[in-house]
């Protein structure tokens, strides 16, 4: 499983980001490395190098950072590391959450890195006003019939709706399936493999969402999502 390192000038910030990302990814090693090593703001090369080796299970590590100089420290430590390490330029908080969830879903190193760096655009997309009308919810074949897609309306009977933890469970439940799953709430839609996009829908408890799955594993994907909702996301 891919590990994560959060490098920040502030120890408090690094710890907080690691805590937040860890909530959605209980099995991922997320190691914070913040501060200058003597209680002040800054970065500490040796501490970052140590954090990388702690985060590495042998599969590789993604390193996220706050300011530019932390990137330089992280890159030096990555070059010196024996394992495979990618330093990813991503928004720190969203990037860490997205990377953690991807790692929890057993994604490989490039996928976890991509999840982190894609976090900014995913977030922006999901908070945008409304989905473009031309993004058809179910792809249509030339003759107008829909292609192997299934959908269901789901009532969110849990208390918090599609909040962080339920969203993470949905995204995680889909790993390994060959299906594109879209969740629609009101006039917004989100890719169900993206925790941030799902959270961005703001679907509350008591809300109703439409889940549409397309692709070879569409039925199984839909079954997993509806089953989670039916169990109130194990709340």
């Amino acid at each position: 499983m891919i590990g994560l390192v959060v490098v920040s000038h502030s120890g408090t910030l690094a710890d907080g980001v690691a805590e937040l990302a860890g909530q959605m990814a209980p099995d991922v090693r997320i190691v914070p490395s913040g501060g200058d090593g003597s209680g002040g703001l800054g970065t500490d090369y040796l501490a970052v190098a140590e954090a990388i080796s702690q985060a590495d299970t042998g599969d590789g590590v993604v390193v996220l950072f706050d300011l530019g100089s932390a990137k330089m420290v992280a890159e030096m430590a990555a070059e010196e590391s024996a394992g495979e390490v990618l330093v990813v330029d991503a928004p720190l908080v969203e990037g860490a959450v997205a990377a953690a969830v991807a790692a929890q879903g057993d994604a490989g190193l490039p996928q976890v890195a991509a999840a982190a760096s894609g976090a900014a655009s995913v977030g922006a997309e999901s908070v945008g006003s409304s989905a473009e009308p031309e993004t058809a919810r179910t792809p249509e074949a030339a003759d107008g019939s829909t292609v192997d897609s299934v959908s269901a309306e789901v009532l969110l009977t849990n208390e918090v709706g599609l909040h962080a933890r339920p969203a993470a469970l949905v995204a995680r439940s889909l790993t390994g399936l060959d299906a594109r799953v879209v969740v629609r709430f009101g006039d917004q839609e989100a890719d169900a493999t993206s925790v941030l996009a799902l959270m961005g829908l703001g679907a509350p408890g008591g809300g109703r969402v439409e889940v549409t799955a397309t692709g070879p594993d569409a039925p199984e994907a839909l079954r997993r999502v509806t089953a989670l909702a039916a169990r109130d996301f194990d709340e």
């Binding site: 200058d36 800054g42 970065t43 500490d44 090369y45 530019g68 330089m72 420290v73 890159e75 030096m76």
Partner: peptide, 15 residues
């Protein structure tokens, strides 16, 4: 310098 300076100057002068 890499391990003690910190900041941007540590990695830069170190390199």
């Amino acid at each position: 310098l890499i391990s003690v300076v910190g900041g941007a100057a540590g990695p830069l002068y170190g390199t």
